[in-house]
Design a binder for these strands. Structure first.
Length: 477
RNA sequence: CGGGGCGUAGCGCAGCCCGGUUAGCGCGUCUGCUUUGGGAGCAGAAAGUCGGAGGUUCGAAUCCUCUCGCCCCGACCA
């Protein structure tokens, strides 16, 4: 028998790890800080990928692949970029039994190789914009790791674009931020705040960084996607130039944006409960699980026949799994599929077959509250409606939770309380010393400066100086 | 890198302080029978270089020295 999961209230991080391992999303690898993504976890990732990839294509992007190794000299071309990544680089110094003339960095991100290639591919304004995405793995030598949230190697997607004008590049940066928000809200059912990163939280080498920020079940923040505007910094470092309509040589304006397997961590922490995972229907590898129930052999035949009929009707429109394993009892299966977060469960036994109905149970509403009887005749509509309803309710619940834990403190004392319990939305002058003070006092950091700002001005919550922007503060992962 | 915890069967642990012959327990696994509407029962079976190296001893999971690894908490980060 599988162990009961540690309740979230008792030890949130233990709960998180246990859910991942017991639901078989991932496992620890023989290398410290690395994980194996198991089939169920990978299936979830594949749905994340599909949701994003479709949106990238819809916004005009193409996929390509750049190499894993980056010559050290390329990494060093952009000063702030090296500085930011140097401490977490994995470097290959030997190959084929010999010491390499130039060490190869295992990419922590690909701006540099991409920049190098773009400088060769881009000659004319007619070559622009270049809109490329790649699905890849990257390595960052993290000191403290956690499954999905921060592993040494992780899977992600990184978009890299080059444009003829600053405006175009800025538009692209915000467009992709919007794509991330759209995916996260509508597919992952996770409400997010879109905003700009402070100077200190910026991506190394970026002119402006944007992120989407979500609140986890323990009220901490998770940066769930980023989009960067580089201005001409990378173009100048990598000599990405084009000739404009007037024959003048110009540097490109570039962007990059990424979302990673960390998203899976967000899904676990935003929706999960003490029973385990709760997956949003749009991304769930299995949307509906059918648990047939019988006592006698003849009942088994009748029940399985009804299941087959149902499968024929439903299988075409939802990702359906029939759990006809003989070795487990129905109760065991209920618990098992709840742990795995399957959004809907159909129970069907001899009594149901006789009444031409099934029991439909919602994962997001545990116990009797989430159960209802549904006539077999209208099963397809009932199931698709229920899936849509679960998806909606999950987003609604997560949004209510976040809003209930987001405060607008009036003074620094209440700000400290607010940030200890969730998010604080407050005026901030933009000065790094205020940011540092907050971090020291409360461990909280600026998460982002939301794009949606109220009219007017206020006073910095820390120093009292005039401030023109409201900022979200919170403790983060 | 600082602090804490842990390495004994697939998983979770006991045994260690106080050395003793075939190293236990629960879950899981396998076989058989009975079961199946919220984590089934009985019977039987397989499975362990006690993280590694060295030492002390007639004898080491247990004592000593060294070492490797992992997890959790802090500083750095998608």
């Amino acid at each position: 028998m599988r162990e009961k999961i540690t309740p979230r209230s008792q030890d949130y991080s233990k709960w998180y790890t246990e859910v991942i391992r017991q639901a078989e999303l991932a496992d620890y690898a023989p290398v410290r800080g690395c994980m194996v993504i198991r089939p169920y976890g990978y299936a979830l990732w594949e749905h994340v990928k599909e949701g994003l990839d479709r949106r990238f294509k819809e916004t005009g992007h193409e996929n390509a692949y750049f190499p894993l190794f980056v010559p050290m000299s390329l990494i060093e071309k952009e000063a702030q970029h090296v500085e930011g990544f140097a401490p977490e680089l994995a470097v290959v110094t030997h190959g084929g039994g010999k010491e390499l003339e130039e060490p190869l960095v295992v990419r922590p991100t690909s701006e540099t190789v991409v920049g190098y290639m773009y400088s060769q591919w881009i000659q004319s304004y007619r070559d622009l914009p270049v809109l490329i995405n790649q699905w890849a793995n990257v390595v960052r030598w993290e000191l403290r790791t956690r499954l999905f949230l921060r592993t040494m190697e992780f899977l992600w997607q990184e978009g890299h674009t080059a444009h003829a004008t600053a405006e175009e590049a800025q538009e692209e940066t915000l467009r992709m931020l919007e794509v991330y928000a759209d995916f996260t809200i509508n597919d992952a059912a996770i409400p997010v705040l879109q905003g700009r990163k402070s100077e200190s939280e910026k991506f190394p080498g970026a002119e402006t960084s944007y992120s989407i920020e979500a609140m986890m079940g323990d009220r901490r923040a998770l940066q769930s996607g980023t989009s960067h505007y580089f201005g001409q910094k990378f173009a100048k470092a990598f000599d990405i130039q084009y000739q404009d309509e007037n024959g003048k040589l110009q540097y490109c304006w570039t962007t990059s944006w990424g979302m990673s397997t960390r998203m899976i961590g967000a899904i676990i922490m935003v929706h999960g409960d003490d029973q385990g995972l709760v997956l949003p229907p749009r991304l769930a590898p299995i949307q509906v699980v059918v648990v047939p129930i019988w006592k006698k052999e003849e009942e088994r035949t009748v029940v399985l026949e009804a299941v087959e009929t149902m499968k024929a009707a439903l299988g075409a429109c939802v990702r359906l799994k029939v759990d006809d394993r003989d070795e487990y009892s129905p109760g065991w299966k209920f618990n098992d599929w709840e742990l795995r977060g399957v959004p809907l469960r159909i129970e069907i036994g001899p009594r149901d077959v006789a009444k031409e109905q099934v029991v439909l149970a919602r994962r997001d509403q545990p116990g009797r509250a989430g159960k209802s009887f549904v006539p077999l005749a209208g099963i397809t509509d009932a199931v698709t409606d229920a899936l849509a309803q679960v998806q909606n309710d999950m987003l609604k619940r997560a949004t209510e939770f976040r809003d209930a834990n987001t405060h607008e403190p009036a003074d620094y004392d209440s700000f400290r309380d607010a940030v200890a319990q969730g998010f604080a939305r407050a005026w901030w002058c933009g000065d790094v010393t205020c940011e540092d003070k907050v971090k020291e006092d409360t461990q909280a950091t600026t998460r982002c400066i939301p794009l949606d700002q109220l009219e007017g001005n206020g006073q910095c919550i820390v120093c009292g100086n005039p401030a023109s922007e409201m900022t979200i503060f919170g403790r983060s992962y």
